[in-house]
Simulated assay, not measured.
Amino acid sequence: MSPTASRAGADPEPAGAVPPPAPGGTGSRDRARGAMLGLAVGDALGAPAENLKPSQIRERWGRIEGFVTDDPAGTDDTEYAIFSGLLLAAHGSALTVAHVESAWHEWIADRDEGPFRGAGFSERGTLENLRRGLAAPISAQHRHAWSDGLAMRAAPFGVYAAGRPAEAARLVSIDGTVSHDGEGIHGGRAVAAGVAAAMTGHDPDAVVLAALSVVPDDSWTARSLHRAVAAARRARRDPAATQLATERAVRSATVIGGYPWTDLAPEAVGLAFGAFAAARGEFAEAVAMAVNMGRDADTTAAVAGALAGALRGEGAIPADWAKAIGPVRGSCLPSMTGRHVLDIADLLTPPPDGRERAAA
């Protein structure tokens, strides 16, 4: 498959249509690069802390304020975001479930290469179902359809549908139909819509409202997001609240105590938006808070990084963090080896002269 970038206008475009200028003017590419690079940075920063408790993080590293390994790298979060970004660049607003299912077969399920290391439970369940011959939406009928596997790869949809949260949510739902259901879909919709709002806005509160606008009010995802953001805002208003106290407040409002799985979409999305709200969209603060709260730290930091990167742009990401992100290694998805998140950002936004850009 050789994706070609296309960009949606107010209505779905036919495949191959020349994209209109991006919403947000000259800053749109900077924000797109901020979103995608922010996702990868958050993923790599959070990877060592994945599945750890905050107390375990403090015992091992104190507070994580940067990379704690000599060779930082992204996980399946970054590789799947690239996968979805390429798929979206190929089909734009004409994306269908059939396109997504075909890409899963072509790039993942029908390949023999690689041990599929580091994949989440939802991805493994989907892969097994597809290899058994099941088709979407039945392919998403596994025990982890509520996981954060869609939320972790949702940012490209917000980048593509910049300024149009509802369209971002619609498109990510199509992607998620192959692998997720229920709260798993809601989590992806919230993230995609939040990134879409951040791409053209400046107010962190508007980003939160956009996320809430595309999920049912009575959903677990909406309730978790409300609780996390409310806790973050209360802590910000308290002049005596320390960084640690803020993290504890957000985590306590969101995490299901004693539950063995850490990849719950409502929990991960709540923690990510809580960190984003507590930091008022400032990149380094949001990502560090997401990492230090533990649980599915690579995903929560990847989502917080995508939101803050879209809101503040590529320049908001500390240079040493950005420099550490190279082409992905294909440790989970060998078919993505050698691709860089910044190339995906450029595919999903038109170049300054308005012409289409073909995928490498």
Rank of each mutant, 00 (worst) to 15 (best):
R251G: 07
S252Y: 05
T254H: 10
V255R: 10
I256K: 12
I256V: 15
G257L: 12
G258T: 04
G258F: 07
Y259W: 14
Y259L: 10
P260M: 04
W261Y: 09
W261N: 03
T262M: 06
T262G: 01
L264I: 14
A265S: 15
P266K: 11
P266W: 08
P266N: 08
A268L: 01
V269S: 03
G270N: 02
G270V: 11
L271E: 04
A272P: 00
A272N: 05
F273C: 07
F273Y: 15
A279D: 05
A279S: 13
A279C: 06
A279K: 07
G281S: 14
E282A: 15
A284H: 11
E285M: 01
E285N: 00
E285W: 01
E285R: 13
A286F: 02
A286R: 00
A286C: 05
V287C: 03
V287I: 06
A288D: 11
V291W: 09
V291I: 14
N292R: 09
G294E: 14
G294I: 13
G294L: 10
R295C: 06
D296E: 11
D296P: 01
A297S: 15
D298W: 10
D298M: 13
T299F: 12
A302K: 04
A302Y: 10
A302Q: 05
A302D: 06
A304W: 12
A304I: 09
G305L: 01
G305K: 01
G305S: 03
A306K: 09
L307Q: 00
L307G: 03
L307F: 01
L307K: 00
G309N: 07
G309A: 10
R312A: 10
R312L: 01
G313E: 01
G313W: 02
G315F: 12
A316H: 04
I317K: 02
P318E: 09
P318Y: 12
A319I: 09
A319N: 01
W321I: 02
W321G: 00
K323F: 11
K323D: 15
A324E: 12
I325W: 04
I325M: 14
P327T: 12
P327H: 12
P327E: 15
V328K: 01
G330W: 08
G330S: 08
G330M: 07
L333K: 00
P334W: 07
P334M: 08
P334E: 03
S335Q: 08
M336Y: 06
T337P: 01
G338T: 08
G338M: 08
